[in-house]
Design a binder for these strands. Structure first.
Lengths: 371, 371
DNA sequence: GTAACATACTTAAACGGTTTAGCTAAACCG
DNA sequence: CGGTTTAGCTAAACCGTTTAAGTATGTTAC
C-alpha cells in the first residue's frame, strides 16, 4: 500500500493541495497515466506506478479528488437519510438509532457512506440542503406525504426508498402494518375490560399542533403512520362497543417522554378519567407512566399503558412496558439493501411489510373498580 | 419557491436527468444565465428567471448537480465522522450516540451534512473509503494514533479535529483529562477500603487481543485514552499502597456488555478474588455486574463496580452505577463547532478539555470481609 | 449630444479528474 | 522478413457547473 504521511509542518494537514496534473508534469508523463496509476494498475509499468506515488507524496497529492472523480464517474459514494426532524431528535429516539444501525450495515456492505440529512437545518425547512446533497440515493424515513423535502428528494431523480411513510407508487417501501399492529394493542386492553381510553398520538400533519385532535383534524392527517394506527385503535374499540368519538386523542409535536407527560396530564384531567392509555411510541409511553405516577396513580393499578416500538428500554422500565414490537434494525437493513439494489439497477422485490407482535408486560392489567 | 414535482410516470423519480446546458438550449439562452437563475437572481430579469424554472421543470432538471457544483466551488457541503469500528457498534453505544447528537447540532447550524464513515467497511480496513469521501473536513473520533485511516484522513489535507484521541500537534482537540478522571474513580474505591482490584479495559492497540494484558503490552499501548486511564488508576492505587503489578488488566476487543462479562469471569476466577472492578466504560461495567450476579456475587456487597461515561442507563440500572460522568453531547458540539470554524478559516481556540466528575451511586461500597 | 452608467446577457476559461481511441515500439510468429 | 500482438503511454473529449470579464442596449447626467 502506498504510505500515507502527514506532511506539511507541525500543523499537519494543510498547505495547497496538488493536483493530478501537477504530479504528471513533475514526472513528465500524461495526466492519464497518473490517473491510471490510481485506477488501473495494469495500464502502466510497475516501476512508473511507484514513481507516481512517490512524486504524489512529495508534492502532497492526496489522490484523486472525490468531487472531480464523482462528477466524471457519476456517482457520489454515499446514501442520504432524510429525517423529518432535527438530527438531535433522531439520536434521542432509540427506535431511530436502531434503524440507523441496521441501515449502516447495508451501507457498509456496499462500501457507501451514510449521509445524515436533517429536515430542519436552520429553523425553516430548507430544500436546498436536499438539492445539494452529494448522494447517489435517498432513504426517506417516516415523513409526511406532502413534505416539500420529500418532493425535493424525489425531484433529484435518484433512486429512493421510503420507510414507514409515505408510500409512493413505484418506490420500494419498507414498513409494518401499522393498522393491525395498533389494533392488536387496543384489543389487548379491551380484552382486559377497559372501557375508558385515551390516546397519546404523534403529530397528524406537519403544521404541528399540540392538544386534543378532533375528528376533522384526524381526517385531514397527512402522516400515514399516525392515521393508520389511530384507525387500528378505533377498529378494535368499535368491536368492543366503544365509540371512537368518546376517545380523546392528544396530539404531540414530538415523540419525547416529556411531551407524553403533558399529554397525559391533559387526558387524565378529563371526566370520566381514562383507565387505559394507548401511546404511539414507547418514548411517549414512558412519559405517560411518569405523569401518572406524578399524579399519584399507579401503573397498572389505576392506569394501564401500552406503548409502541418495543425499544430496549421498554423491558427494563418499571413497570416493564407492554408494547408493540417492531423490528427496527431489520427495517434499516432492508431499506438499505433495497436502495443499494436500486443503485445497481437490480430489480427490487415488492414492498416489504415486516412482522409486529404485541409484547405484554407489566404496564397493563384489568381496570380496578370495574365489575 | 419553485415547485417540485415528481414527474416521469408512476415510478416517480427516474428517467434521464437533464443538464443545465439543455435547459439553456431549450430557452435559447446561455448556460451562465441558467446558472444565475439558481445562484444569483439579481443577474437576470425576473421574467426570464421564471421561464428558466418552468423549462427546468418541463425538462426534468432538478437543479445544479451537487458534484459539479461542488467541484467548481470547491466544497462538498458535508463533514465526515471517522469512527474506529463498524457503525453498527457506534450506534450500539449510548456514549457515541450522545456525541453524534451534539455533533449534529453543529452541522445543522452550519447547514452541512453529516457523513458517517466506518473504519471497517468490508472486513479489512479500507482507506479508499476515506480517500473518496466527499467531505470538507473530518472529525476523528477516538482512534489509534497509528491507525492508517487516520493517516488517510489527514492526508486529505482538509481541516480536521480529533476527539478523545489521538492528540495531534496543530489539530484542534476535544476531550477530557482521562488520567485524572480515572484517578478519581480509583481513589473512591481505595477510600472505601478496597485492596484487591481488577480492571476491565478497552483495547490497548489495534491488533486486538482479548485477555490479560501484561506490563509490556500496557507500555506499548497506542490508544491514548486507554493508557491514560490505566495510568490514572495506577497512580491512585499506588498512593493507596497497592502495586499496579498485582492488578490484573483484562483487555476487551470491544466496549459491549457481553465482552465485559467474559472479562469479569476471568478476573473473578483469580485468587485472591478482587473486591472491586474498574471498567473503562459503562457498557463494560454493565457486563461486569451481570457476570458477578451470574456467579452468585452481589453488587456492591461482594463486588464494587465503577464504570466510565455516565450514560443515561447508568442511573437507571440496578444497582445504579457509580461512574465517571463526562459531557458526551458537549464534546460533539464543541468538536463540530471547532471544525466548522476551521472550515471558515477562523482561528480555533486551544484544545478544549471538558470537565468530568465522579458520580457515586449504588454499585460501590466498602468491601465486606475486611477489617 | 455624448460620456457615464446600469441592466441583461454572453463568452470562455476554469474546477480536477476519467476514459475512449489511438499511436509507437518492442515482442512474437511461422 | 512481413505481419500480428501486446505493453505502455498519450491526446483529447467529457463530466456539469460557476464565474470573471466582456458586450450590447437603454437610461441618465450634464
Amino acid at each position: 500500500m502506498r504510505g500515507v504521511d502527514v506532511k506539511g509542518g507541525p500543523s499537519g494537514a494543510q498547505g495547497r493541495r496538488a493536483t493530478l496534473r501537477e504530479v504528471a508534469a513533475e514526472l513528465g508523463v500524461s495526466p492519464a497515466t497518473v490517473s491510471n496509476a490510481y485506477n488501473r494498475p495494469d495500464q502502466l509499468s510497475a516501476g512508473l506506478r511507484e514513481r507516481v506515488f512517490e512524486a504524489a507524496e512529495r508534492l502532497g497529492y492526496a489522490g484523486p479528488d472525490p468531487l472531480a472523480r464523482g462528477l466524471r464517474r457519476r456517482r457520489a459514494g454515499a446514501i442520504g437519510v432524510l429525517y423529518e426532524d432535527r438530527l438531535s431528535h433522531a439520536f434521542a429516539d432509540p427506535a431511530e438509532v436502531l434503524f440507523l444501525r441496521g441501515f449502516s450495515v447495508a451501507t457498509e456492505e456496499a462500501g457507501l457512506g451514510l449521509l445524515l440529512l436533517s429536515g430542519a437545518p436552520g429553523a425553516e425547512r430548507d430544500p436546498e440542503m436536499i438539492r445539494g446533497a452529494v448522494v447517489d440515493g435517498f432513504v426517506v424515513y417516516s415523513m409526511a406525504e406532502d413534505d416539500p423535502l420529500v418532493g425535493a428528494a424525489l425531484g433529484r431523480r435518484v433512486p429512493a426508498v421510503t420507510v414507514d411513510q409515505p408510500e409512493i407508487e413505484g418506490l420500494p417501501f419498507v414498513g409494518i402494518d401499522d393498522r393491525s399492529a395498533a389494533r392488536e394493542a387496543a384489543e389487548h386492553l379491551v380484552g382486559l375490560g377497559h372501557r375508558r381510553f385515551g390516546v397519546v398520538s404523534f403529530a397528524l400533519a406537519p403544521d404541528v399542533r399540540s392538544g386534543l385532535a378532533d375528528r376533522s383534524r384526524q381526517g385531514a392527517a397527512t402522516y400515514g403512520v399516525t392515521s393508520s394506527r389511530l384507525r387500528g385503535y378505533a377498529e378494535a374499540l368499535a368491536e368492543g362497543g366503544i365509540s371512537w368519538d368518546d376517545v380523546p386523542v392528544y396530539e404531540c409535536p414530538m415523540s419525547l417522554p416529556e411531551v407524553g407527560e403533558d399529554a397525559t396530564e391533559a387526558l387524565l384531567a378529563r371526566e370520566p378519567r381514562p383507565t387505559a392509555i394507548l401511546a404511539l411510541s414507547d418514548q411517549l409511553a414512558f412519559g405517560v407512566v411518569e405523569a401518572a405516577e406524578g399524579m399519584g396513580l399507579s401503573v397498572p393499578g389505576d392506569l394501564s399503558v401500552v406503548g409502541f416500538d418495543d425499544v430496549p428500554e421498554a423491558a427494563r422500565a418499571t413497570p416493564p412496558l407492554t408494547t408493540v414490537r417492531q423490528p427496527h434494525e431489520e427495517k434499516g437493513l432492508r431499506a438499505g439493501r433495497a436502495l443499494v439494489a436500486r443503485l445497481r439497477e437490480e430489480e427490487v422485490s415488492s414492498p416489504s411489510l415486516l412482522p409486529t407482535r404485541l409484547v405484554v408486560r407489566g404496564s397493563t392489567a384489568a381496570p380496578r373498580s370495574r365489575a
